[in-house]
């Protein structure tokens, strides 16, 4: 993580663990929600992935200190999840998935009330509520009753009430639910900006993998109550052998045949994208590709080191 220190120079601090969970098992009756799960969540922005019913929700609840684990232990910011739930929740902000607000209040009233509930003195809470609402893009609508808000605004106010007391860890459950493209982009930018260089650590749980890719540095994948994969998104997306993706204007059989004649491995195209495997460094490979394109009358529109999408990473983790 890069931090800007007081002298304004970028320095790399060592990764600090925000949450550490070891051998945690949670059972509800006969149902095992978490099965001997161990994981570490370092500071920064972490995506929490998993299919429905995989235990994501239980893990979030555990981090909030709501769950009484059958066995195992965990700490969140140094506080025990089994005994220190209240202290943990004072340091955490939760943005729940469902619509929620406190009825009969203006946005400012609601957010400052949320701040007071977190323990802020009333004067600080009110001042900070104005600040946070401004920051969440609700500055103009802050004196309106929350009940009159649109979906996008309700989503923002949920973030505002989670941020008001300056949490060190922010849990976001499907933060872009129901937002239109512009709303989703603004929400993601907002999340990204609080989670980078502002000292707020974020855990995002979402089914929308491109959203995760946009805001998170790393992901953990939980499947059937167990930790399946964890790591930085960059590492997880890497492909063995570093093939390149070549995008043509139009698919061309002659082009791929030419490359194969030159001893390169070309996978069957997806649309007009060809995945080419070779030992050459990228700039040399590009020369080969472009010569082949000129020869075969094709036009290269894109050339990039191929990576897996996060969806592919996820689906692979699911089946392995």
């Amino acid at each position: 993580m890069a931090h800007e220190n007081s002298s304004g120079v970028l320095s790399y601090a060592r990764l600090v663990t925000v949450a550490r969970i070891s051998n945690l098992t949670v059972r509800y009756g006969n149902f095992t929600a978490l099965d001997d799960l161990s994981c570490e969540i370092p500071e920064g922005c972490t995506g929490l992935l998993g299919p429905n019913g995989a235990g994501k929700t239980t893990l979030l609840k555990t981090i909030l200190g709501f769950v009484n684990p059958t066995s195992g232990e965990g700490t969140v910011m140094g506080k025990d999840i089994r005994t220190d739930g209240m202290a943990i929740r004072q340091l955490i902000g939760l943005m729940p998935e469902q619509d929620c607000h406190i009825p009969g209040m203006t946005a400012v009233g609601f957010v400052s009330y949320a701040g007071e509930l977190s323990g802020m003195p009333p004067a600080d809470a009110l001042r900070r509520a104005h600040e946070v609402l401004e920051y969440c893009g609700l500055g103009e609508a802050r004196y309106r009753n929350v009940e009159t808000y649109s979906t996008g605004m309700k989503q923002r106010i949920k973030l505002a009430q989670a941020l008001v007391h300056g949490p060190k860890l922010l849990l976001l459950d499907e933060p872009t639910n129901g937002l239109d493209p512009r709303g989703r982009e603004e929400m993601l930018d907002l999340v990204r900006s609080v989670s980078h260089g502002r000292g707020v650590n974020v855990i995002v749980s979402s089914h929308l993998l491109p959203d995760i890719e946009r805001v998170c540095d790393r992901v953990i994948v939980v499947i059937k109550g167990k930790l399946r994969t964890a790591g930085t998104i960059k590492d997880l997306k890497k492909l063995a052998g570093q093939p390149a993706d070549v995008e043509l204007r139009e698919p061309s059989l002659a082009f791929s045949n030419l490359l194969m004649d030159k001893g390169l491995t070309v996978a069957p195209p997806k649309g007009n994208v060809y995945r080419v495997q070779s030992e050459l460094p990228p700039e040399e490979l590009l020369r080969v590709v472009q010569r082949a394109a000129i020869e075969s009358g094709a036009q290269v529109r894109g050339f990039e080191t191929a990576v897996r999408t996060l969806e592919e990473v996820f689906l692979e983790a699911l089946t392995s």
């Binding site: 995008e247 204007r249 700039e283 394109a293 036009q299 529109r301 894109g302 050339f303 990039e304 080191t305």
Partner: peptide
């Protein structure tokens, strides 16, 4: 002119020996 541009681009690498490691159209 995307078409003309991409028709020209290969000359940089194949004829003039510039080092290019990748290119893409982010707004496509």
């Amino acid at each position: 002119e995307l078409n003309q541009f991409f028709a020209f681009l290969p000359t940089l690498t194949t004829e003039e020996n510039f080092t290019i490691t990748g290119f893409s159209s982010p707004d496509n």
